[in-house]
Design a protein around this nucleic acid. Structure first.
Lengths: 227, 227
DNA sequence: TATTTATGATAGTAATACTATTATTTATAA
DNA sequence: TTATAAATAATAGTATTACTATCATAAATA
């Protein structure tokens, strides 16, 4: 018997909860596959309506605009990821192991554990890599922040920074190191696949290299200094 | 007597060289201030034409579209930054000092040395922080890359990675560490000012904290390990 | 069964992202 | 100096985008 996660999303992200209707769920799942396919710039509600077999007007009843829909999708992902980190580190006593598990999760590859009926996590992961920063790299980031639109990302950052503190209570930049780890998990992946000369993994494009880079980076930085 | 830098820009970035005419130069300088002011999403060639006292059609003769103009501006900045790093590290013998100088340059604040008549470097720096990633986070990144549109960024990355190698020839991820340093110099700045709880510098928003974070991160990582 | 609520179908608007045409001004070359 | 070429201005036009509005109908609920 499968247990499906239903994160409680920030109500400011939508006009009508897409999780409360069949068409709403289709908007999300088709939205994910369409954004993945054509990219956020060329993505429009009209195209999504056609894909979903509904009308533009209906989608506008759920989301104010396409950036809000993207933010909904991205927030869902951070929520999911935060849960994965929590679940997989909770039973561990060793902070070093927790960090390594977290890096594994941040740089995950599809396996059966992650399969879901409605949401294509592989597409979602690609969207996070290529599009997620667009939700906060705007002129209205401060207003959005006041409406708590970035909480799931902040929660994840906070959780990871606590693990860092557990590993080395004396380290003074746990939050900045957490955002560095999250962002670089995605950026190095994007660069490896699209602009490989910006990385050291170009010859053999394998996510394992990103993991090794991150493990080295994080543990070097967290190592207690004796001077 | 002042000596002005004129980087040779990739010809694929423009249709007609904006550096060869007065109106072209105005398109660039007004473009920078307008993008800074209203953000790239709301920026249009029509608004830029009004600001510049010319017509949309004229701007389209210089740039294919607004993304190309952004890429031109961003490339100009990377080129300028690369020169700054080269110039300011060239005479140094100590690789540690070179790295520290590079971090200073990446997190620069306006001073008289940087003043230019036509290009507002402060605006440009803000654009780099908030908009620069949008030039490669697209579906056409590979085609753009084939046309060498990201060379200045790659050159900077390459230069920094060489300094890392100079400091520790045994370090295996110099390029990835260079992109990490560049990206985080800007991301931590953006987060500090807009989403401060994602950093450890929220109380006193000062770029010095970003610098200290980067110095700690980079030198911890580059330190030779003896095991 | 009555009534609310959601969706579909359709229309419409202002702005965006361009392309095209022609006249006029400016720069350069004979 | 004039002829010629090139650049720009002025204007118009098109398809698409990002919405808003209206009304009829279908589905859910009271």
């Amino acid at each position: 018997m499968e247990w499906q996660l239903h994160p409680k999303m920030n109500e400011k992200l939508y006009l009508k909860d897409p999780d409360h209707s069949e068409i709403g769920k289709k908007i999300i799942s088709n939205g994910i596959s369409l954004i993945r396919k054509i990219g956020f710039e060329l993505f429009t509600f009209k195209k999504l309506a056609e894909e979903t077999g509904t009308t533009e007007a209906t989608i506008y009843r759920y989301f104010e605009n396409k950036l809000r829909l993207l933010n909904y999708i991205v927030s869902w992902y951070w929520h999911w990821l935060d849960y994965q980190v929590m679940f997989n580190t909770n039973n561990l006593t060793d902070a070093e192991k927790k960090i390594k598990v977290t890096i594994q999760i941040l740089t995950w590859q599809l396996d059966t554990n992650h399969a879901r009926q409605d949401i294509d996590l592989e597409d979602l992961h690609e969207i996070i890599i290529s599009e997620s920063s667009k939700v906060y790299l705007t002129k209205h980031v401060s207003e959005d922040n006041k409406e708590q639109l970035f909480m799931p990302y902040k929660n994840l950052c906070s959780r990871i920074s606590q693990i860092f503190i557990e590993y080395n209570p004396g380290y003074v930049y746990p939050r900045s190191l957490a955002t560095t780890m999250i962002e670089m998990a995605h950026y190095q992946d994007f660069f490896m696949n699209n602009l490989p000369s910006l990385t050291d993994f170009g010859n053999e494009k394998n996510i394992k290299h990103v993991r090794n880079f991150l493990v080295d980076l994080i543990f070097s930085t967290l190592e207690k200094k004796l001077n």
